[in-house]
Design a protein around this nucleic acid. Structure first.
Lengths: 197, 197
DNA sequence: TTTTATACAGAACGAACGTTCTTAGAACTA
DNA sequence: TAGTTCTAAGAACGTTCGTTCTGTATAAAA
């Protein structure tokens, strides 16, 4: 946290939670509720500081908008040992923007929901979401999205006696040996899983 | 396009362009400029129709907000045939969709890198990043982050003859049977994996 | 031709807005 | 003890907001 006032990170948290719900930054009056204060002028002072700290900015129409920094998430160091881990995470550690981490080239990246268990030994489960970068070439060993019989299929690219093959990560499924050319749609660059709560 | 009035898609495009620039929907007066008209009442009529068509919605504070449909893109590009499974483009105008998918309450969510293979049968690998929601209670069957010997550990919460235990998803590792109380740090709500490229 | 619907323009209105200024208690300093 | 920040509260103010109602030009329909 780069801002100076001790309670500002608390205010920022509340603002982030509100934004996660409504995807907009409300009026000063509403922000009084969100922050738990009753002074519009103090709300402005808080926003001005968060702006100076780089979490917010304003459009030419003087509308408040979050910056990239606004979406950064704390990343714990797993090797925390001394003291309370919770204290450590609250004060130090890195910050990460999840989308930046997984997506290099937005225009070439798409998300594809995964169906079936054919890659389960690679830790890719039914219901996971694949982050795929579109491109037509891949290397041996890459997990690729190929188009077989008009359907996406996610398999490991391999080569067998001069021919490309698609190898599943599940002994129950058969290796795919395409006749003719193999159409690569993209390669797997990330994986997302969401647990029900 | 599901809306009825012929020029609405043109208005929608202008609105999408504005949003791409400023990441906010401006006032009716400003929208007059954006749309190239001079009537606030007509702006409202347009927004109402875009709302009915599902491109916009309003927060409880009656602030206009774009919906997912607002960001949807035609997926005609690339030589993909009909019958494609549903695909989400990752570039929602540089917006943060993955973040949005995984995180409900930013202030309670923390990312923890995973070390070791103790949960490999659950498809959780060394080097993955766990998305953890901080809370002190969990249900049987939840994958939890517990604090054991001042270290984070990720295990499935279970109960054995009246006592809580932490069950790994790897036969090589032993079940953890904490003596005394078990301190829960949070529960696993998501998983992120990044493949080297 | 007359009527009717469409696609906007324009004015009016009170409510809500953001900004600024003043006030005030609490905490810290000297 | 007296002074001084700091953190808010609160009022005041002119501006802008969204809404509603009415007016109007064009075009299609009758």
């Amino acid at each position: 946290m780069v801002d100076y006032h001790p309670k500002d990170s608390e205010y920022l948290n509340k603002l982030q939670d509100y934004y996660a719900d409504w995807k907009s930054i409300p009026s000063y009056a509403k922000l009084c509720e969100v922050f738990g204060i009753t002074s519009k002028s103090w709300v402005k002072a808080i926003l001005d500081r968060l702006c100076a700290a780089g979490f917010l900015e304003r459009t030419p129409d003087s509308v408040w908008v979050p910056t990239r920094l606004f979406f950064a998430r704390p990343l714990a160091e797993s090797s925390v040992q001394a003291g309370m881990p919770m204290v450590v995470t609250a004060t130090q550690g890195d910050f990460f923007i999840i989308d930046d981490m997984l997506i290099d080239t937005p225009s070439k990246t798409i998300l594809i929901p995964i169906k079936g268990e054919s890659m389960i030994d690679a830790g890719i489960h039914d219901g996971d979401v694949a982050v795929v970068e579109k491109r037509m070439t891949a290397n041996i060993g890459d997990i690729v999205v190929a188009i077989v019989d008009n359907e996406f299929t996610l398999k490991t690219l391999d080569k067998e006696s001069g021919h490309f093959i698609l190898r599943p990560a599940n002994p129950v499924f058969a290796v795919i040996r395409p006749q003719g050319t193999l159409e690569i749609f993209g390669i797997l660059v990330g994986l997302i899983r969401k647990y029900r709560r």
